[in-house]
């Protein structure tokens, strides 16, 4: 067990070494800036449109506006040079009664969108971590 523990510790230290090389860049840069954020957003809209259950919530959404505001928001939460000018998450999701299952399903769709945009696993996790605190404003309103 001791050998195994030191192997694991060694792996962690090596990972730490890799990380320190690019720790000064923002998540926005790590994502690949605006082109990649636009790609994620377009893929995400596409993913939603093919998911019956989730698409139902977007029936009255103006997709152009949704696209513009989501790009702003992803750019903003990843410390990019954008201001989010849309409504608050709580206002947007009012009376939509989005369930926990639907929320998690939508996170899966976002992951698909990021995969298709070629976003690295670790970068995906960081972006999801930034978005996760919005969950209470989104579900069951």
């Amino acid at each position: 067990m001791k050998i195994i523990s030191s192997l694991l510790l060694g792996t962690l230290l090596t990972l730490a070494g890799c990380q320190s090389l690019n720790s000064s860049a923002t998540l926005y840069d790590e994502l690949g800036g605006m082109p990649v954020i636009e790609k994620i957003t377009d893929n995400f809209i596409n993913e939603i449109s093919f998911d019956q259950q989730i698409a139902a919530h977007f029936r009255e959404t103006k997709i152009d506006r949704f696209r513009e505001k989501l790009i702003e928001q992803l750019c903003n939460v990843s410390d990019g040079p954008c201001k989010y000018t849309g409504d608050s998450m709580l206002d947007v999701h009012q009376k939509m009664n989005i369930t926990e299952g639907e929320f998690n399903r939508t996170v899966d769709l976002l992951i698909n969108a990021m995969n298709q945009a070629g976003v690295a696993h670790r970068t995906q996790n960081k972006l999801i971590a930034r978005l996760a605190p919005m969950r209470p404003d989104i579900i069951y309103h």
Binding site: N125, K126, I128, A129
Partner: peptide, 9 residues
């Protein structure tokens, strides 16, 4: 913890 360990969960 999302992305907590050098980006790994």
């Amino acid at each position: 913890h999302l992305g907590a360990l050098f980006g790994y969960n």
